[in-house]
Simulated scan of single mutants.
Amino acid sequence: MTHTGAISHISLSSSDYEASKTFYSFLLVDLMGYKRVMDMPYCTMWALPTGEVICVSPGNKTPHHKNNPGLNHLAFHTATPELVDEFYAKIVEFQAAHKEMTASVILDKPALYPQYGEGYYG
């Protein structure tokens, strides 16, 4: 049963579609348990068994800045703060192995952010 307010899907447009597919496959499949459910020239989708879907499509080649209109960031829940640290370390390692990719940028290291709520760690 779908709950009102639950995320159905998130769609991202990328200036480097192939690099984005590589990065999101790593992030979503390898780290978070999504399954790639569609891979077409115009869209790649990953989904969880619970129905949440993330889609990446080719966009234009204009560089994005986090304050431009559009998606500012994409956040996922984790079971523990330690898992945030583990994912961070794995993403940094992935980026080091794929220096030619510019599809993913980490702006800040994991930290406690009390301004977002008690115990908020991201």
Rank of each mutant, 00 (worst) to 15 (best):
S20M: 02
G5E: 07
F26S: 01
P81H: 04
N60R: 07
H9N: 10
P41W: 00
H77G: 14
S57I: 07
E93Q: 07
S25P: 03
E82I: 06
E93A: 08
A75E: 07
V53Y: 03
L31I: 05
S14M: 04
E93V: 00
Y34N: 00
A103M: 01
S25H: 10
V53N: 04
D108H: 12
I54V: 10
S57A: 14
G119H: 06
T4Q: 14
D16G: 04
L107G: 15
N68R: 05
A47D: 08
G70T: 05
K21W: 05
T78N: 08
Y121I: 01
L107T: 10
F23A: 05
Y113A: 00
L83M: 14
K99A: 10
T22W: 07
M45I: 12
H77A: 14
T50S: 12
H9K: 07
T22P: 04
N60Q: 08
D30F: 01
L28Q: 01
N72L: 15
T78G: 04
K109T: 10
T44H: 06
N72R: 13
K35V: 15
K35R: 13
G5P: 10
T80R: 07
T2K: 14
H65Y: 09
K66M: 14
V53S: 03
E82G: 12
A79D: 12
Y17L: 02
H64E: 13
K35Y: 09
E86H: 12
Y120K: 05
E100Y: 03
I10Q: 04
A111R: 11
M45A: 12
M1S: 14
S14G: 00
T102K: 12
E100D: 11
S57V: 09
E86C: 11
V29D: 05
H77R: 15
K21C: 10
L28C: 06
M45Q: 14
L71S: 06
E82L: 08
H64I: 15
S104K: 02
I10H: 06
D85G: 02
F23Q: 02
L12G: 08
E118M: 09
D108W: 11
P58R: 04
D39F: 05
A103G: 03
P58A: 03
S104C: 08
H73E: 09
T102G: 12
A96F: 05
N67C: 11
E18T: 14
S15T: 13
K109Y: 04
A89H: 05
Y88A: 02
T44R: 00
T44S: 07
P114R: 00
Y116G: 01
